[in-house]
Design a protein around this nucleic acid. Structure first.
Lengths: 193, 193
DNA sequence: GTCTATAGTTTGATAGAC
DNA sequence: GTCTATCAAACTATAGAC
């Protein structure tokens, strides 16, 4: 067998630790996850975690990669409507829902709130893959200019941030996402003429 | 005299401590400002700071109020162009410049990166005053719908965040601020018909 | 791989002399 | 108001037995 059973069990253990870390992050915020709390959560002693992660930042890195994999799965589970504009709005809406569903995950993936943490190249590659998915849907909808793409991404992120900062759980900002997407996409199409 | 000389000297000392705290924040990030470093910066011992601030969060609160006062001064120093649309773009541009000029200040004022810190009512009132300035300029430009105001603010914040996160010091995102302001303001005016 | 024990830091905050 | 001395608590990380 290519992947031994011990390796499988180890990966499962790593995954369960990461899941427990997300649970703590959702409860206390991503910055306040400590190895002691995490060890208690998974029923081991704190130094035992070093059998799975070389450092705390290695844990954050695993969470970062895991969160981006969740995003990829979410995006790939969408069956895109035929109309490219509708597809774009569906995609951006799903992205916004994903972001708002878990503020702690959002903080680690898209904000830079953990001092000293920089994702590894491997983990960052997953994030780039997810962004590439978004860009391809924008392209299909006729938003091809780099500046227009930047604006559409920034506008979406701005609505998400405002929603999470001021009214988590509500829709005061995100209810405008579809309309804003139309406004920016229309403007992008006009500029192509 | 209404304000005694001792009170004046004390206020000046408080101001100098806050300024030193900003200096440390710019150097190491707002989250890594410690009372020990701050004390060394102003030439006193760490416990002496408690003669001026009851707690670390009280220091953050003074910085929060100070930063928002800086914003108010910046906005009030602008002589607004007669054309309300130009005035709007000037104002939002000045706001963006203010935000990008000091990432640490931006983090404390507009992001929520310090766990456990909530601004006091007094400090928050200054922030509300600054936001009110922005809203009044939007009103003058015909952006009066609450949803449209939310979108304009969120879009501006989104461009600022993207600029600071990915390319501090550059203009890849902020160079689109004027155009995006026009696009959103035009759309707001159309919707009023 | 998991444990106990502990090193080594850093932090915010308090007590009490001057 | 400023100091010295110190508390009390958290944290990451390592050493070494089993």
């Amino acid at each position: 067998m290519v992947v031994s059973k011990v390796a499988q069990r180890r990966e499962a253990k790593v995954a369960s630790i990461v899941e427990a870390a997300w649970s703590l992050a959702r409860e206390h915020g991503i910055q306040l996850v400590s190895l002691r709390h995490l060890a208690k959560e998974v029923g081991m002693q704190q130094p035992s975690l070093y059998a799975y992660f070389d450092s705390k930042n290695a844990l954050y890195d695993a969470m970062f990669a895991d969160g981006n994999r969740q995003l990829l799965e979410t995006l790939d589970s969408i069956d895109l409507p035929a109309d490219p504009r509708v597809a774009l709005k569906t995609y951006l809406g799903a992205f916004a829902d994903f972001a708002v569903a878990d503020p702690a995950r959002n903080s680690l993936l898209f904000r830079r709130v953990v001092p000293g943490f920089e994702p590894s190249a491997e983990a960052y590659a997953v994030a780039r893959e997810a962004l590439a998915r978004l860009v391809s849907v924008m392209y299909a909808a006729g938003v091809t200019d780099h500046g227009d793409i930047d604006c559409l991404v920034a506008m979406t992120a701005g609505l998400i941030e405002a929603q999470l900062s001021n009214e988590p759980g509500g829709d005061r900002w995100l209810r405008h996402l579809n309309r804003m997407t139309d406004v920016l996409a229309d403007n992008a199409l006009e500029r192509r003429l």
